[in-house]
Design a binder for these strands. Structure first.
Lengths: 232, 232, 232, 232
DNA sequence: AATGAATGAGCCTTCATTCAT
DNA sequence: AATGAATGAAGGCTCATTCAT
């Protein structure tokens, strides 16, 4: 999935030439930024990489931050959509959580450049835009929120748990995992971390008893991922 | 604790006039940055807030980024030091984890401006400085790492768990919690979240059985914190 | 010739708007620098004098020093070109030397502001740029070198003379003459000095015998130039 | 003569500790400037090299330019004084000119760092200080002027020659020679150039006849100096 | 729609000089 | 006399954005 299909997301039919330029600029922005860093990502460089004139960028985007936000919107939009599809096919809440994380990791795992942008550069924007970022993330938050609520209702998840804190643990862990992967050069497989991450989120750090430890061993594969990973 | 004692860390007595200026500039930097944002934190504004001339800033700091890094160094240094003290007094690994998170939340909870800088603005720096940030964070990482290893060795923590992923869950959850608190205006008590956060980290999302749920209810207080918190 | 035709050199027709701005900035730089001195020649002042924005200067020149170097390049380029033309029409080596000095004095004599820049301000640049200045001057050096060699080969110039020293005498004398003229306010005619300078370069200080002195009297006119000149 | 005796010049007895600091600062200024260049010659660096505090420099010199001017004043003062001594011992005007140039070349030849300062860095000062430099040079100019007048009166030098132009030729040639020597790294002997320079100044470029050329051959040594010299 | 030349606001940093001690 | 910490003015350069063509 290095074809940037993530950018146009779920739109079934590309509109026109317009859309082609729109996408080209977003593609270029991701590439330029992941290559040259935040400060090296001048509009003129993005425009050149996209094969358009500087001014043309402003026909498609309000300003530079709008490009960054659009990148996130597209990426998250696509993840959310893919989540809806995959989660519907899951039977248990456990599976749904695993599916959610797998979709997220798979998406970013296939696009290190995009991951670099969302995990690092997007955080360098001004405070006023963080609000907008929050709005973009909301649908994704909702998916998780609904998942947590469902889990609690069906008795699977702990009933007295603070939903917000649970959600922050999920996002915080995902975020930290992806950021560590990105900052160490995207050298190992991000998806390979899914099972371990899900396991620790579901069961926490504490070993309830020896049997539980023994039972969970089979499905885990820490050793594999460990060998590929540089410690951060 | 708005007296910025966090800045000089554990030093009982400020050395000289030197140190006073050093601290004054760091204080000013934290205040100005939390108020005006990263891009609004011009050296001249920081200098004015510190009551010194622009040039004086450069007698104490190499450049603007050095100020940012110094803020983190002081803050983390103080947290690490406080952790060593508090963790030594803890009997169980559970308590140690709780103490660690409590120290961290208490420190930042008392200094919303500092939290704003570490959680938001510090991430806006250039790639080259991120390495330095990593070095500063290492001692803190180590504390957590040792805690995890100890927990696993004494059979308290799950033995087959990936240590790195466990650490990322802890940090990711803490980070997400503090960031959410900061971005919603630091309106509720950050320390009040400690028990819930620790609980969810230790036991995960899954309810093992009805009894466990019932047992954990007593020590938790989601309702209290919930009422103060705006959802993010 | 205060029309700065020296700047575009031999180009018969200015290319485009591009060239017009390029020339306008060089013109402005010469004027501003000769008027306000090197340290008073801020980019913003040059830009204002050229009728462009500060940033526009950097569309045409790499940096401030590049402007200085460009001024020299244009000026010297024009002199060298004019020299080639005039020297070809000369019969004797004496005449060629006279023509060379006349072209140089005429050019700078018509542009006191330019002379001020090349004789005074250009020498205030950094060591690294002196090399570039040397490269620019080389063609001019070569013209003189060839002239000296030709004179020696045809037996006109003293055969055992050190060519380098001869060249330094020629340049040193020209340079000192122009600098003295510039620093005293360009009040007298620089070209009027040509014959005397050439005479002293060709025959030196020593009177060979009474007859030679008597013979040379007719062609010289020290009294005229003397009356206009303030001693330096 | 690398002992900086040039700095105190002819003063028979150094005044006190005062004078020692005065000299130390001038020494340091010459060293620092020749080593680090004009822009690298900050007062603080000069002070450190002189072993005094920054502020102390201002007890001995009005400002930074005053240091530069003082360096020139000392150097020229010493040359002028040495000239008076040596020229008195000369019989002919020719010899006096040779002595003058020899004193100048010997002095700078023994102090490449000083030569670098006078030939290169001193010219980077502002316009207002050039006047002061002119004043300092006047005694040296006078020596040459008197020499020229004497030569003309005794019939040795050409009677109708423009004195000012003659003087500029002498200074221009000396200056160009020293500058070329300095900028090529002071690799050859500057004094070794004296005879050739004097010869070309006295007799000019033109060969009067074959006999003259033959006669002058014996006293010249172009080949020697040529081998040591890199062309500029 | 597309261009790209032009704009100009904005800021970090240096360093000669001062002055309280 | 000596110190050296403190000062603060000053400017080259970048780059997001505009707009005439």
């Amino acid at each position: 999935m290095n074809d940037y299909s993530f950018i146009v997301g779920g739109r079934a039919i590309a509109k026109e030439r317009d859309d082609a330029k729109h996408v080209a600029i977003l593609r270029a922005a991701v590439e330029v930024m992941s290559q040259y860093g935040y400060h090296g990502a001048q509009i003129s460089r993005i425009a050149r990489a996209a094969g358009v004139a500087d001014g043309t960028v402003y026909l498609y985007f309000k300003n530079k931050e709008d490009i960054l936000v659009s990148i996130l919107r597209m990426a998250i939009g696509r993840v959310v959509q893919e989540c809806s599809r995959q989660l519907a096919a899951c039977q248990t809440t456990d599976d749904k959580l695993a599916a959610l994380i797998r979709v997220y990791f798979a998406d970013l795992g296939d696009n290190p450049a995009l991951a670099m942008v969302t995990q690092v550069y997007l955080r360098q924007v001004d405070a006023n835009i963080r609000r907008e970022i929050g709005d973009i993330m909301k649908p994704f938050y909702s998916v998780v929120d609904e998942l947590i609520v469902a889990g609690m209702q069906e008795g699977k998840f702990r009933s007295k748990m603070d939903r917000r804190i649970a959600r922050r643990m999920i996002f915080g862990t995902m975020d930290e995992t992806v950021t560590a992967w990105v900052l160490t050069g995207s050298k190992y497989s991000l998806v390979s971390q899914v099972d371990d991450v899900v396991d620790v989120l579901l069961h926490g750090l504490v070993a309830v008893n020896a049997e539980e430890n023994a039972m969970s061993e089979g499905s885990l594969s820490h050793e594999d991922s460990s060998t590929h990973e540089t410690d951060v």
